[in-house]
Amino acid sequence: MMPKNIFSIVLLGFALTVGSSGIAASQNPQEILKSSLKAQLHLSWTGVSRVEIFQEGENVILVTQIIHQPRLFHFVKYLEPPMLRGRIIFDDGVYARDYVPGKNKLNISPSFNSSEAGKKQMENLALLLKNYQVSASPGGTLLNRPVIKISLNPLYPGNPRMVIWIDEETHFPLKRERYGAEGKLVNVTTFMSLEFPNQVDPQKLMKGLSLKLKEKPLPPQSLVLTMEEVKKQAKFNVSLPHYLPPGYFVREARLLEEGKLVKLTYTNGLGVICLFQRPRAHVKMRYYSRVKFGQMGAQFREKGTSRTLVWTRKNITYVLIGDISREELNRIALSIE
């Protein structure tokens, strides 16, 4: 009993430290954002989140229970929609295990909550602050907590934007609205309930998890390399775009499928562009339209916040995905040599 109480007190103390440091810096919206990101990563919390995804045809509402224990795990359990109910994501800081109980199916991907991921988020926040105008205003109350409304507006048009409602006390983000490159509201994330620190015993939670979620997966099949290393190690000639939308920088070059697939990631802090390339392949895809950019024929589709362009040239298949305007997507594609 004693160790558990001490643990809770330590967590509460940490939460208050993070929270109070945020309050001290609350006059500066950029500092609020930094503090908010830290709060998200380092606070111990549990809550019920509601995400509404606006898409053509039918909107999707996801309700999840989330338990976050810094440096230990991030647990997500689906409550809605009925078809996803019971689905669990368990992220132990190394892997994110996505488990569907009915199907007894386990998908494993690199962690979203690792210290490396947190570091990248901090780096991207610095980039975001360069490419976005940040403004703060009183946001009323959410969950009976006074909140600050932070608006992130792109300095360069044709990029996504975001509005965040941040808890004045802890600087935890309680609500987010994301708008696409065309200015359309794409999704809204709201917390329906939230508690600091979480009241869940990590060991008890771990015990209750399906054995499937505790399986030790194989190491990730991808390597993060420099652009030069990727060019050398890839099993084909890697092409790079000569044009990137203003504010975008290369963030990552990754080699997948034993060198047969190259993934280049560019970001402006909030928007992300990925360029995949590999020797000729048939990309199976539904709900797309045939388009032309320059002399090239391509497949194009929009899904959620992203736009995708797929084409093959000189025996290399390219997949370009980004939360940017179609014109910008075409411009990048045309500049690839």
């Binding site: 999840t64 991030h74 689905r87 994501i89 988020q121 975001l128 994330t189 992300v272 995949f276």
Partner: peptide
């Protein structure tokens, strides 16, 4: 033959690098 899902999941994972979208990314990636 490669499904576009593969690329989209990779893309969504990269979106997780953006601050304030990690958790949402996790949900959408499914």
């Amino acid at each position: 033959e490669i499904s576009i899902n593969y690329f989209e999941k990779e893309y969504v994972h990269s979106q997780g690098m953006s601050p304030f979208s990690g958790e949402l990314t996790m949900l959408i990636s499914l």
